[in-house]
């Protein structure tokens, strides 16, 4: 049941090219370089976790990929098309949900199809199907404020995936959840990702989360963010909760901990807004 559908047509889309990009944020005297010379590619269908200390520019990279902020140097591509602005092809999920408070769950999920001009009954049918997939059937008529944090993030994922995006960008999506809900959501995500194979970049600062979810972990340094390690994980799928106690897992965890431990801890940086909209 849990074996990944290797549909050729879906696996061939979602190649991400990050070509020598630097991103500067802020104006005038406040300007600073958030990420410097990032250069890597992500294969179609890959689930990549980006790990790094806070302020390393992980969120900035996602914001640029989503098309919400411009790169200063270099080029971002998805399937060889340059990223020029926001598009439903590149869905993004944030730590704090951005569901529309005035729309019921079903209308939130149906928003993308509505923007494409899909008729009411067809888009509601598609929305209900997505809600079933994320385990929220029965909650179609609720308002977002009536749901728990984990449920809100499920709606958020459904709302993005209904557009069948080429890439799924996740910016610490489970960072605000309690530990139990968080590990449940990780399994939910893997389950959804198995059914709808989508290239995914998942930003987190939780090492266990990255190791549990990813095919590949990219470790970034503190500001300006650069790639310091690119690790392909040896774990098979489906992943089970016992994985986190296996020797390989623990060994990798220790290795990444060492990478992330700064030689002399500088002051923690203020959290930056992932959406630097001017």
């Amino acid at each position: 049941m849990n074996i990944r559908i290797s549909d050729v047509s879906t696996r061939s889309v979602g190649r991400i090219g990050i070509e020598r990009i630097s991103i500067s944020l802020g104006d005038g005297a406040d300007a600073f370089e958030a990420v410097r010379d990032l250069d890597f590619a992500i294969a179609p269908g890959e689930l990549v976790c980006v790990l790094g200390p806070s302020g390393c520019g992980k969120s900035t990279l996602l914001g640029a990929l989503a098309g919400h902020l411009p790169v200063t140097r270099g080029r971002l591509t998805v399937d060889d098309q340059a990223v020029l602005g926001p598009s439903p092809d590149r869905g993004i999920v944030f730590q704090q949900h951005t569901l529309f408070p005035w729309k019921r769950v079903r209308d939130n999920v149906a928003f993308g199809p509505k923007m494409r001009g899909v008729g009411r009954s067809a888009r509601y049918q598609a929305a209900d199907e997505m809600l079933r997939l994320v385990g929220l059937d029965g909650f179609e008529h609720f308002y977002p404020s009536q749901l728990s944090g984990g449920m809100q993030q499920r709606v958020e994922i459904a709302r993005v995936l209904i557009n069948r995006p080429r890439v799924l960008l996740m910016d610490e999506p489970f960072g605000a959840l309690d530990a139990q809900t968080r590990s449940m959501m990780q399994e939910v995500l893997l389950d959804i990702w198995t059914r709808i194979p989508t290239t995914t970049i998942f930003v987190t600062h939780d090492i266990e989360e990255a190791l549990f979810l990813a095919d590949r972990v990219i470790v970034m340094s503190a500001r300006p963010g650069r790639v310091i390690e690119d690790i392909r994980l040896p774990f098979g799928r489906p992943r089970r909760a016992e994985l986190v106690t296996e020797p390989d897992f623990v060994r990798l965890k220790r290795r990444i901990l060492d990478l992330l431990r700064p030689p002399d801890s500088p002051e923690p940086l203020a959290r930056l807004s992932p959406l630097w909209i001017r």
Binding site: S87, G112, N163
Partner: peptide, 11 residues
């Protein structure tokens, strides 16, 4: 503005 950005991302 997060809601506006989100709506733009959704098309």
């Amino acid at each position: 503005r997060r809601l506006v950005a989100s709506a733009r991302s959704l098309g």
